[in-house]
């Protein structure tokens, strides 16, 4: 599902955000990416959604080589990959429903489809009773669930989560991780960047460890080792 082949990325001549990273993630996997601050985790996420291009190496997502993807194709790629971030990136003046619907609106979906799909997805993340709340009327965990619902709206093959629980307390964190596992069970490949040691250790899933832009570990049933 995801292939990185000898990928390097330098933002400045001397800053090696990533050097010579090779990794393969199969469809249906649940992978955690860990590493110290500045080790290149977010850089991998940005490469996968083609926000940046690698300086060297090849990037492939869902059998699609996106190393030299054309600008007009980037939106199509992004509809196949859901992304969520630590800061949720919700629109404050839109309700829960509208925030999720927004992702369909901008891809030109008809109203009827929006009315049908949005409640379904919000049901998956268990927010059916808060459709008309505004983000500031929600808890952090609920906000992240809205963001996840939005990321799922196009039924992506891959869900990327860059520190999805970074702003959440223990209880909300547990909720979100359970939700991600549930999404993974439905068949979506989940890649989660995280700093949370307990979560990683309790998941007992694959863990990729980065250290200053280099691969420092890739374990089937991993532990948080840094």
């Amino acid at each position: 599902m995801i292939h990185l082949e000898k990928v390097s990325k330098n933002f400045q001549p001397n800053v090696n955000a990533l050097s010579d990273i090779t990794l393969h993630i199969d469809a249906g996997e649940f992978v955690s990416i860990v590493g110290q601050s500045g080790s290149g985790k977010t850089t991998i996420v940005r490469l996968l959604i083609s926000e940046i291009q690698p300086d060297a190496g090849e990037v492939e997502v869902g059998g699609w080589n996106i190393t030299k993807i054309k600008k007009v194709q980037v939106p199509l790629l992004r509809r196949q990959i859901g992304v969520v971030f630590q800061d949720f990136k919700l629109l404050p003046k839109k309700t829960v429903f509208e925030n999720v619907a927004f992702a369909l609106q901008v891809s030109g979906a008809p109203r009827a489809r929006i009315q049908q799909v949005v409640p379904q997805v919000l049901n998956i993340v268990d927010l059916s009773d808060k459709l008309h709340r505004y983000p500031q009327e929600l808890s952090g965990g609920e906000r992240q669930r809205v963001a996840i619902a939005r990321a799922l709206i196009h039924r992506p093959k891959v869900l990327l989560a860059d520190e999805p629980t970074g702003n959440l307390d223990a209880l909300n964190t547990k909720d979100i991780i359970e939700l991600l596992l549930k999404i993974n069970e439905f068949g979506t490949t989940v890649v989660m960047v995280t700093h949370n040691k307990e979560i990683v250790n309790s998941l007992k899933r694959r863990v990729i460890t980065l250290d200053r832009g280099l691969m420092a570990g890739d374990q089937r049933v991993g532990k948080y080792v840094i």
Binding site: R78, R79, V83, A103, V106, H154
Partner: peptide, 8 residues
């Protein structure tokens, strides 16, 4: 956000 969710 538009870019993120795949608006052309």
């Amino acid at each position: 956000i538009m870019k993120l969710v795949g608006a052309s």
